[in-house]
Simulated scan of single mutants.
Amino acid sequence: MLRLAERALADPRLTEAADATWNLLLCLDPDGSRRNEGWLSGPYTLGRYFRNFFRPGFLEQPEWLPDGAAGAALPETRALLDVQDELRPFLQCSLHGVDVGGGFVELTHDLPGLDRRLARIAARLGIPRELGAYDALYWPGLGPAVYLIPPPRRAGLAAAITEAAVESTWFHPHRHGTVTAVVEAPMWGVAAVSDGSPPADRDAVLRSVSRALRRDTALLRQVLTRIRPHLAGVPDAARLLAPVDDYLLVCPGLADAWDPDTGDGAAHPLPLLSSAHLAALRISGRRLALRTAGLLHQLVRAAGRDPAGALPELDLLIDEWCADYRDGCGARWIPVARQAEYQARVVLSAFELAGRHPRAGSGPAEPGVGVRGGGADAAGMTP
């Protein structure tokens, strides 16, 4: 964010010459960012990160509008909607951090040429591109590592969490002609997410990933059952339990959807999968387990006692699963300066391309750019 501000101030081609104003929202979710302070100052290790990571439960994430804009309850969400309706920017960029994987972009409207620019930026900075992003598993592709966010639709909570099947602040300004770009940058890069080749044995990998997710979910449910009775009176226990319950809600359905032997894919079949897709699914399944284990770890620590004896077990699980990321997936730390530079360059590319193309939506967009950090997910992205 600071890099973008410095460049906009230093380069008149980004402001006066383009007849554009840059509006920077440093953090959409300051509470979520504060709750990540346990890992933000480093050292940057997977174990430290997951033991201190926090992302709110789905209903407390300010980007989503499960009850529509009129029903937005969070003050952060209402403030953002007001800003969007007041400024009506032609481009909105939301900066996100991917803990493990690669970089990619999600758009509400195509920006032709962004995929080629993204490829050059990623190559120069040594950032793997995520060619089969789990977030966009069922979404149309606009080019390698660039995906089209589908229009919102009504669905249950599980689909809203796993498929973004819900109204959002990404789509809200579409009526003003705004294009939204969600720019995802990895903290730990994995080269395998850039492998677009056909997999050697798709079904074997899917079976392994789905079975691991079922096994991990069962272990974590048992731990939660043991510690939940001891959480009465623990400060903020409900805030930590909300995302735990979300993760444990969606894991069984995801495992069934990925498993080629369950038959659950008939109603919602998987797309044609590359090796990159399979790597992303493996990472995503492990991410769900690690985030849940880390939140349970925080709950026990917050309680100040461990009558259920859960902490040693959680430490073993977190260490084992982090080792799988590091040794099994080849996850490697990307310095924060490179993460930030990657996001800045992608935003500047989107800005240039958005200025060349007709506006989306039905209303007139103003000559402004909105850039915002996402809070919990983007907490590590500002150098």
Score class of each variant (00 low, 15 high):
171 F>N: 00
236 D>I: 07
241 L>V: 08
24 L>Y: 09
301 R>W: 10
20 A>K: 05
101 G>W: 02
205 V>N: 03
356 R>Y: 01
234 V>W: 12
163 E>M: 08
200 A>N: 12
199 P>S: 02
230 H>K: 09
16 E>V: 10
178 T>C: 10
110 D>P: 04
60 E>P: 05
31 D>R: 13
294 G>P: 09
69 A>D: 04
279 A>Y: 02
38 G>Y: 13
315 D>E: 15
48 R>M: 05
284 S>L: 13
327 D>L: 15
363 G>D: 10
292 T>E: 05
244 V>Y: 12
162 T>F: 01
163 E>F: 02
277 H>Q: 02
151 P>T: 01
320 E>R: 14
339 Q>N: 07
18 A>T: 11
232 A>C: 09
372 R>D: 07
239 R>Q: 15
263 G>V: 07
353 L>I: 05
327 D>Q: 12
138 Y>I: 02
54 F>K: 10
26 L>D: 12
69 A>E: 10
268 H>M: 08
247 Y>R: 14
165 A>H: 00
178 T>K: 04
2 L>K: 07
24 L>F: 09
346 V>N: 02
219 L>E: 15
53 F>K: 11
56 P>L: 02
354 A>T: 01
374 G>C: 13
50 F>K: 05
37 E>N: 13
218 A>T: 14
143 G>R: 01
382 T>R: 12
236 D>T: 11
130 E>H: 07
155 A>H: 02
327 D>G: 07
37 E>K: 13
218 A>C: 10
349 S>R: 09
82 D>L: 11
90 F>Q: 10
19 D>A: 14
101 G>C: 00
367 P>G: 11
139 W>F: 06
339 Q>V: 06
341 E>K: 09
72 A>I: 01
283 I>Y: 00
383 P>E: 06
185 A>E: 04
287 R>H: 14
31 D>E: 15
194 S>L: 01
318 I>E: 00
342 Y>L: 06
350 A>S: 12
160 A>D: 02
379 A>T: 00
160 A>N: 01
196 G>S: 06
368 G>S: 15
365 A>Q: 00
272 L>A: 15
64 W>E: 07
307 P>M: 04
213 L>A: 14
104 F>E: 01
105 V>D: 02
122 A>V: 08
346 V>Y: 03
305 R>H: 15
221 R>E: 15
370 G>K: 06
210 S>R: 00
